[in-house]
């Protein structure tokens, strides 16, 4: 059995069909990049993986079990913005991840337990390169550093799957390249299973081990909401590699988006 199985998944909002007939399976350790035109349902799909939204029909199985219908520790998330807590400094932002589970009533941990959590947090902060900014608050950090912090938070819980919702969309190109390197290292080192939504098709190719392109197969010009999107391309990528046909596919997808 696969690590994550998606069985005949449908999603609609009232009359608007967003996704239809999605059947896919993902193995542990894969890095799936999801691309597609805006409004194609890739974010909806990510939200269903997260548990924020529920499928209209079909199901998603993680290790054979139905996904919980609300966000939980099994699934980590990094949003494009606002995923860190503005009232806590870097260290507190990461430590809170374990305080949530260690101190169910008070929300604060003291003594030797706290020391252990601190050590663990420091290790992850170091892994994302934020050690010099330990005592800084999020508003004192750049956009890239805030995303590093959000990643460190998520890593604390060793999630079975890590979801990235356009995590680098708001960053400068130079910083984005650094972040790509960071996420690739973290993925390999921690053997994570990652799902990433991105607008940037190049980014999708560069980062993932697998690429999904969301698009509508059926089109009714008189009822544009009649049919939902499906995964039209499911490509295995050799990470970091750039082959000739990748550029062709990029061109093709771009062309397709323009035609809409």
């Amino acid at each position: 059995m696969s690590f994550l199985t998606i069985n005949n998944l449908w999603k609609s909002y009232g009359d608007v069909q967003v996704l239809e007939r999605i059947n896919l399976s993902v193995e542990q350790g894969e890095f799936v990049s999801m691309v597609g035109a805006s409004g194609c349902g890739k974010s909806t799909f990510l939200n269903m993986l997260l548990g924020k939204e529920q499928a209209t029909r079909g199901q998603i199985l993680l290790e054979g079990n139905m996904l919980k219908q609300e966000p939980d520790e099994e699934r980590g998330i990094v949003f494009q913005r606002y995923s860190v807590f503005p009232h806590l400094n870097v260290l507190q932002n990461v430590m809170i991840a374990d305080e949530f589970t260690e101190a169910k009533i008070l929300g604060w941990v003291l003594g030797s337990k706290r020391k252990l959590i601190k050590e663990k947090a420091l290790a992850f902060i170091d892994a994302v390169g934020l050690t010099p900014a330990l005592k800084k608050y999020p508003h004192e950090l750049s956009g890239g550093m805030q995303q590093r912090l959000a990643i460190a938070q998520a890593l604390m819980k060793a999630p079975k799957i890590l979801l990235l919702d356009e995590p680098f969309g708001a960053l400068d190109p130079g910083i984005r390249a650094d972040m790509h390197q960071l996420i690739r290292d973290i993925w390999k080192k921690n053997k994570l299973t990652i799902f990433m939504v991105t607008h940037d098709i190049k980014e999708g190719f560069e980062l993932g081990s697998r690429l999904w392109v969301f698009d509508k197969v059926r089109h009714d010009p008189h009822a544009p909401n009649m049919y939902g999107a499906r995964v039209t391309y499911d490509l295995a990528l050799n990470t970091g590699g750039q082959s000739a046909d990748i550029n062709n596919i990029v061109a093709e997808i771009n062309q397709h988006e323009k035609n809409k």
């Binding site: 939980d72 699934r75 949003f79």
Partner: peptide, 24 residues
């Protein structure tokens, strides 16, 4: 996003209330 993030870090409703919402 913050509230969802807290849930993915394992926070209960109570902990979201006292550690994420209250201080803010």
């Amino acid at each position: 996003e913050q509230l969802i993030k807290a849930q993915t870090l394992g926070a209960s409703t109570w902990l979201v209330a006292i550690r994420v919402v209250l201080p803010q």
